[in-house]
Amino acid sequence: MSDPEAQLARLQRIHRSTHLLKEGGNPVALLPGFAFRAAGRIETMDLLLVPWNHSGYMTRLFFERALTHRGQNWRSHRVVERTWWTPSYSDVASTLPWHEMLCAHLRSVA
């Protein structure tokens, strides 16, 4: 999606402290201390939404910690100078608005 600032504004309606960082000249959205439901529990942690092709996937959502009870094949990655965890979860298109992209990725651990 074009216009990262507009996409960010939509994400900030969900989570006010979301802000943009850059990786390889491309925008990524950091959601500090984001609360979400995983396996019936509320988890709170930093999330990083990469809304473009990364590590062989169309888009990715990185988690501060691995949720070993949900999602498959959790692996660590180094993105924006921080170590993150993400499950193997594909088919979240980069054409989606970022807030929809976020929700689609969170379904993999819901």
Binding site: H15, R16, G33, A35
Partner: peptide, 11 residues
């Protein structure tokens, strides 16, 4: 810096 949120909205 370990960023912390000021608002948390469960989805």
């Amino acid at each position: 810096h370990e960023a912390r949120c000021d608002v948390r909205v469960p989805i």
